[in-house]
Simulated scan of single mutants.
Amino acid sequence: MQDIQHTTTSYYVAKLSSHKPVAFNLTPDSKKCEIIAQSLGLSGLKKLRFTGALKAHGKSDWTVEAQLGATVVQPCIVTLKPVTTRIDQPVTRQFVRKLPEQQATNDGFEMPEDDNLELLGEVIDIESIMVESLALALPDYPRTEDGALEQQNYAEQGVTPMTDEDTRPFAGLSALKAKLEKPE
Rank of each mutant, 00 (worst) to 15 (best):
Q74T: 03
E65V: 10
T63W: 03
L54A: 13
L45P: 09
I77R: 14
L48A: 08
K46S: 12
W62M: 14
V64F: 08
K47Q: 15
R49K: 10
T63Y: 02
L54T: 13
G52E: 11
T71K: 14
L45D: 08
H57E: 08
G58K: 03
A70H: 02
V64P: 13
R49V: 06
R49N: 10
K46H: 14
G52Y: 11
G58W: 01
L45A: 09
H57V: 02
K47N: 15
V64W: 08
I77K: 12
C76Y: 04
A56V: 02
L45Q: 08
R49I: 05
K47G: 15
D61I: 01
S43V: 11
A66T: 05
G58I: 03
R49D: 07
A66M: 04
Q67I: 07
Q74D: 04
S43F: 11
L68F: 07
G58N: 02
I77Y: 09
D61Y: 02
C76F: 05
A56R: 04
H57D: 09
S60F: 00
L48G: 05
G52M: 12
A53Q: 08
K55D: 10
K55P: 05
A56E: 02
C76R: 06
D61V: 02
V64N: 09
F50K: 01
V72G: 13
A66E: 04
V64T: 10
G58D: 00
S60T: 02
T51F: 04
V73S: 03
L48S: 05
L68P: 09
T51Q: 06
L54W: 12
L48Y: 05
A56W: 03
C76K: 06
A53H: 06
W62K: 14
K46L: 13
F50A: 01
T71I: 14
G69R: 05
G69T: 09
T63I: 12
G58T: 01
K59W: 04
W62L: 13
S60L: 01
I77M: 12
